[in-house]
Simulated scan of single mutants.
Amino acid sequence: MAGVVLAEAEVRADLDLSPRLTLRLPEGAVRTWSPADPHLYGLSVQILDAAGVVVDEVRSYAGLRSVSIDGNRLLLNGLPVFQRPVLDQGYWPQSLMTAPSDRALAHDIELGIAAGFNGAPAHCSIIRTCLAIATRSSPMRSRSRTASIPSIAP
């Protein structure tokens, strides 16, 4: 449900150099991310001053998932996943190796899904955009960086 607050928590940030916060979702609200259901939770993190006034805020998103190896099997959320990736080099006539728009990059991902692939080692020149689109589109994508393609660290 968009806009519904599922959980809130607080931690003091002035007592420790690396404060930790545990955010517990209600049992019925837990929805794991998977290629079949790429659910993402919206997040808002605020820093308040002593008077309770917001001095900084960041908004992002996160998916809940576990990834592990069992022998020679990849497990996603405890279930085996057979990887069927395609090497996506990305080519667009009007811009060569860089997608001309987020929509063009999303379309490239959608074509791979339609062809039956569930992942792609992608060479992205704009890593954050690539990961955001791929995460919302559902195939499992790994990112790689090469010296010939500049990238922004996530």
Results as ranks from 00 to 15, higher is better:
6 L>A: 07
149 I>K: 02
149 I>L: 14
149 I>T: 15
66 S>V: 04
28 G>K: 02
150 P>R: 10
77 N>W: 07
115 A>N: 14
103 R>C: 01
40 L>S: 01
25 L>N: 04
11 V>D: 14
12 R>E: 12
129 T>N: 12
104 A>G: 10
119 G>Y: 01
65 R>V: 14
136 R>T: 00
65 R>G: 07
140 M>W: 09
50 A>V: 10
89 Q>T: 13
68 S>M: 11
32 T>W: 03
139 P>W: 00
142 S>Q: 09
8 E>C: 08
64 L>R: 04
78 G>Q: 09
21 L>H: 04
111 L>M: 13
150 P>N: 10
99 A>Q: 08
61 Y>M: 11
81 V>C: 02
92 W>K: 12
45 V>G: 03
80 P>T: 02
61 Y>C: 09
123 H>C: 13
115 A>P: 08
20 R>H: 12
143 R>Q: 13
74 L>C: 03
45 V>E: 02
86 V>G: 07
49 D>G: 04
57 E>G: 03
49 D>Y: 08
129 T>E: 14
67 V>P: 00
122 A>D: 12
40 L>A: 03
52 G>F: 00
72 N>P: 05
137 S>L: 06
65 R>P: 00
143 R>S: 08
69 I>M: 11
19 P>Y: 12
40 L>W: 02
29 A>S: 14
132 A>Y: 02
117 F>P: 01
124 C>D: 14
12 R>Q: 06
38 P>Q: 06
11 V>F: 05
101 S>G: 08
129 T>V: 15
52 G>V: 01
122 A>P: 00
58 V>A: 14
22 T>F: 03
38 P>W: 03
7 A>H: 10
26 P>I: 08
116 G>M: 07
92 W>R: 11
39 H>G: 01
82 F>I: 10
61 Y>A: 14
115 A>Q: 14
77 N>I: 04
144 S>T: 14
77 N>G: 11
115 A>I: 06
122 A>F: 12
134 A>D: 03
64 L>S: 09
101 S>E: 05
57 E>A: 12
82 F>N: 11
150 P>G: 13
108 D>A: 04
6 L>M: 12
36 A>Y: 02
86 V>A: 13
3 G>A: 09
16 D>V: 11
99 A>G: 05
9 A>W: 09
109 I>R: 00
140 M>H: 02
11 V>P: 06
17 L>H: 12
18 S>W: 12
124 C>H: 04
122 A>N: 06
2 A>R: 10
4 V>E: 14
88 D>V: 15
74 L>Y: 00
102 D>H: 11
43 L>I: 15
92 W>Q: 06
52 G>Q: 03
15 L>I: 02
48 L>N: 02
101 S>F: 05
115 A>D: 15
95 S>I: 12
52 G>H: 03
25 L>Y: 06
5 V>R: 04
7 A>F: 11
16 D>A: 06
42 G>H: 13
87 L>S: 15
79 L>S: 09
58 V>P: 01
2 A>G: 08
79 L>C: 02
56 D>Q: 12
154 P>K: 03
100 P>E: 07
142 S>I: 11
76 L>F: 02
9 A>M: 13
15 L>G: 13
73 R>H: 03
79 L>K: 10
74 L>R: 00
124 C>G: 09
28 G>F: 01
55 V>Y: 01
22 T>P: 00
140 M>R: 12
21 L>R: 10
